[in-house]
Design a protein around this nucleic acid. Structure first.
Lengths: 367, 367
DNA sequence: TTTCGTTCGTATAGTCTCCGAACGATGGCG
DNA sequence: CGCCATCGTTCGGAGACTATACGAACGAAA
């Protein structure tokens, strides 16, 4: 076992390139990754054996021998789960980025017992897993998105809008009817939505941005150098509690004038005030991190285009570097399922980072 | 040439381990890096040939054959340069982290012509380079710390406390009397101070923290996963312009109530107000990034211990996660030369990241 | 003072993976 | 129908690491 497993790294490189750039011939992969055709052939053979990719029919048209494109297959999937104030949901996402199935239950979970909500989650999970079974897919694992502060073990400290405090979500497999070996992580929904934005949204072309999702609360996820910032305790991204007005109204968190008190979905505030508050909060973010862009998601994306433009203009005027390199403010194209998709993406990312975790199908394996 | 150069990576791994953990035998290195004794021997031989490390005398005492420790040598160095409102300075730092020489010129550079200040910098640079020559050291390159907004090419947009605007610092070699091939980068002084803190200060034990340096202005550098956050344009870390009091006094940057207007070194404010302002700013930082610690540097470190404690207490009370995982506030042990040391560290880091950039000494080279 | 046991560092053979070059495969084009 | 551009495979060789064995050096104990 090598300390630095070259093969593993190159398998990941090729698979990642296919996921990002679409179907490609071995020759094209060789040129684009810098590897040799011979090496790429060997790597592709390995990925084929694991059913991570599949061969397309050779397509001619150009001069020379027709190329046979290699495409990411749809047989390896991951499970995305979400608990929110008004619903629970589960989805099945494949490596290619397609949603294979989706189940949800609406409801008002504020003040509901965690056990009750988790029972609903168990139901949608079972439905999703049944779909996976029926279609004979291989599931790499999953993640659960929660609207609150969780550490990496799954200890949920507080979810203000669910009114939950100190809920133990560590090792949730049994309560979700999943096998104990099923890999599952728990993370903040804003972080996961940012991950979805990074892989499937506007973030595909960016290496550092801040995603801000509006809902009942306001959450954010920062992506720096293509990596989600989770923080020392997993608490990063609580942009909703950045103070924009020290003399403002009291927030559920205890202090006054949090961003969330102005732009939370249930607050009735004018478009102008929302833009002011967002600009004040982002001003701090831009000064601290200098991201390539700020991306508005959730209810903030659905709002008028004007808000994004107004915020961008304010940022250009009031940030130190805005005069030379203004920070663009973009609206996310991902819908309300961003966090759900992001949750599944966690496990998909694990597969792409180490394709050898997917077993080699004995039937497909070349002698 | 491999796409993934294993040898290069392992050379870096061993050298980095030696730099971080101090002198060690080959056997200890093997155990701690996970490599084999044989491999470590080969790697150490390579590092010896490049004069990056040196053998110590075998020391017994314990049972068994005495180990010969390998120590980072002092013959490979880098140049650190700094322009500030009240001085220019140059230092020579070796890989082991020792300052080999240091030269500076005091003065008041506000409103001084950039050319005049650069001439002073040329002088101290020449003195430092002469020291390198005299001691027969090998210099890997250098960096220049400036108190303002610069992009990665060296274009300085604004340095508020120098009253500089749009100064071209790209390719500064000729103006500093350095050979054109001498690798030199220009970066913000707070980012570089944070780098110094990461390598030589409290940050050695941390992977993510925010360093805040007080001076005439207030600058910050964020370290996430052991990497400095420079931002899309190199503008990250302008914590001095986070608003802590929307109705406060007007700042040099144009807006009101920036942190800098309260805690800048030339402002006369009470310890209590400073702590309040810092806590308000850090509150946003902690909510956004959830760092392992906040480190106070520059004039903020020299101030009373009380400030750090007061700020930490405020953060514990007013951050969402403070109740479960309070963010510590620490005082930096690095003195006013933090940015200068950080500048040299840039080039040192390059050497550690790829030790093959240092030529093999033909005399030392084993046949 | 001799012998044993322990630890350090080196030498050698084997394995993994990549690269380079040559070669067969395939199909457009004249 | 032959030419040729391009695709993908095969095969030998090189680089780097691992495992194992071995010599070197020294403390401890008889």
């Amino acid at each position: 076992m090598g300390l630095l497993d070259v093969r593993r790294h190159h398998l990941s490189l090729v698979l990642d390139h296919l996921v990002r750039s679409g179907p490609r011939s071995r020759a094209a992969l060789a040129q684009e990754t810098g590897l040799t055709k011979a090496t790429v052939s060997a790597l592709v053979a390995d990925l084929l054996a694991r059913q991570l990719v599949e061969e397309r029919e050779p397509v001619g048209g150009r001069i020379g021998r027709p190329a046979t494109d290699i495409a990411v297959s749809h047989t390896v999937v991951a499970l995305g789960l979400q608990v929110d104030a008004d619903r629970v949901a589960a989805c099945v996402l494949d490596i290619a980025g397609d949603i294979r199935s989706r189940h949800s239950r609406g409801g008002d979970h504020r003040d509901a017992e965690p056990a009750t909500v988790l029972e609903l989650l168990r139901e949608v999970t079972a439905e999703a897993m049944a779909d996976i079974e029926a279609a004979d897919l291989w599931c790499a694992g999953g993640a659960l998105a929660v609207p609150g502060l969780v550490d990496e073990t799954g200890e949920l400290f507080v979810a203000a809008n669910l009114h939950w405090l100190d809920v133990d979500l560590t090792a949730p497999q049994s309560r979700l009817g999943l096998p104990p070996s099923f890999p599952i992580v728990v993370d903040n929904e804003a972080n996961l939505a940012a991950l979805a934005e990074l892989r499937h949204g506007l973030g595909r072309d960016l290496t550092s941005f801040v995603y801000v999702s509006g809902g009942v609360g306001v959450g954010a996820g920062a992506v720096i150098d293509g990596r989600i910032v989770r923080g020392a305790n997993g608490f990063a991204g609580e942009l909703g509690h950045v103070v924009v007005d020290p003399s403002g109204v009291r927030c559920a968190c205890g202090t006054r004038g949090c961003l969330e008190t102005v732009v939370g979905a249930r607050r009735r505030t004018s478009s102008a005030r929302r833009a002011d508050a967002l600009a004040a909060a982002f001003r701090n973010v831009v000064h601290l991190l200098d991201p390539e862009a700020v991306i508005l998601g959730g209810s903030l994306a659905a709002g008028d285009e004007e808000i994004a433009d107004a915020v961008a203009e304010r940022l250009r005027e009031t940030t130190l570097g805005g005069r030379w390199r203004p920070c663009p403010v973009l609206g996310s194209a991902l819908g309300p399922d961003a966090a759900l998709i992001g949750a599944a993406t966690v496990a998909i990312d694990d597969v792409i980072a180490d394709p050898t975790t997917v077993p080699v199908d004995p039937l497909t394996q070349t002698a």
